[in-house]
Design a protein around this nucleic acid. Sequence first.
DNA 1: TCAAGAAAATGACCGTCAGTCAAAAATCCA
DNA 2: TGGATTTTTGACTGACGGTCATTTTCTTGA
Lengths: 245, 245
Amino acid sequence: MAPAVTSLRKERDLKAREELILDHARRLLAEKGFQAWNMEQLAVAVEYSKGTLYQHFSSKEDLVLAVASRILNLRADLFEQAASFKGSTREQGRAIGLASCVFAHRHPDFFHIEMMLKSASFWEKASPERKEAHARAGARCWRTLYNIIVSAIALGDMPRLPWSAEHATMALISITIGSHVVGMEHNLRVFAGIDNPLLSVRLNQDLVCDGLGWKPLLHEHNYAATDQRIVSEIFPDAAAFLLPT
Amino acid sequence: MAPAVTSLRKERDLKAREELILDHARRLLAEKGFQAWNMEQLAVAVEYSKGTLYQHFSSKEDLVLAVASRILNLRADLFEQAASFKGSTREQGRAIGLASCVFAHRHPDFFHIEMMLKSASFWEKASPERKEAHARAGARCWRTLYNIIVSAIALGDMPRLPWSAEHATMALISITIGSHVVGMEHNLRVFAGIDNPLLSVRLNQDLVCDGLGWKPLLHEHNYAATDQRIVSEIFPDAAAFLLPT
DNA sequence: TCAAGAAAATGACCGTCAGTCAAAAATCCA
DNA sequence: TGGATTTTTGACTGACGGTCATTTTCTTGA
């Protein structure tokens, strides 16, 4: 058996190489999508052979899922930062809404990867460990919003009925995902005369929050001021596209 | 030059063969998804050669897009039927909401095809004609809902501000698509304890309609009775899964 | 320092499949 | 009927994901 000190270094090296592979894979995904590159090209880029790639990932899909999970964790990070905003529960919910826009702006390529994950035979080609890791990352996002909504109900900011906290969470996630999907659709944007898709996402989130009766309602509070605070306190570098000029 | 009568028959035969191909392709898509069948298998199924398939469709993606457009037109048919419901504008909107559920129930496999269309390099492999046909089918769905919302605003059922009819349409489409996407996500369903995804779709649609201030609001009207009427008058065979037992 | 054994890296090779095209078959027309 | 035209065919090509026998590198103990 190998000395513990040696095997630890090896493990570290292995982890570093995996990161290297993921970095390059992510770049290729952003630049070319899924089809327009192959494992040989990735191998050349990272300066290892194809066989070595397959020691880290069981398939191309498995690799892409790993990239997706890493980016999804970045989203969860943003959500958790947003949730730390000091204000009413609805303001905290709004901060998460802004976080989803910051994320979309920082990772515009991720949208297509996410759509890919929902389609096709992606999941049956991925390894169980990666699937679980992805589920965990998704759960982080879910939980962050869910906790705020539970607080909102407990504090009386949101009426108890007729929706459970779980369903309110799902509604907000649904409108956010749906708005992003529709916002990417070129034709619909033309029909609806939408030039700033992220603005539509936020308007739609407001709509659902009001529909849920989440107080203070849109017309009861100056949310433009809230947005100012959220941006300056949490996403200072995102002011350019989140706040009206 | 060939006689007109002959070339007409040929055109008809060609069209019939295209339908045959589309029927079988659709079956394969429903049974196996996109990857797990190939053009050779389809050729055997329709009893023509692979080369003949490529006289109708420029690529596998082109063929799948044609299938998708055909199904999307079926959805537009349902929407137009729903829009003919006699009632308030919000009731008509609700009828379209139910139509989207009827569609999801009749074509459960279509969801994955639609997601595929949003991802990857699908569009660059499809022919311009098929892309345009698909855009037309999408526009039919959009327009049906849009017209009702324009009426709603004109009649004062929906406040003029702060959302345009276009944006209200987009919001309802977004919540519908988003709810379907989330409803398909197994993990989220477990988290949220959702056993009937279609019910969530409808609840979320209600949420947005209320958020839009579309009168009569949910608590101002007995929509269970409306649902009864919509189902009996427009979707009589869908009572089993649309109405509470 | 070295040799033997263990572990890791490699890339030639395999099977599959979308898409092509020259040859064959079918159809048309004078 | 036979030659010209159109349509159909399926063998072939190139590309790619994935494998595994061979080679290279590293570890260990004397």
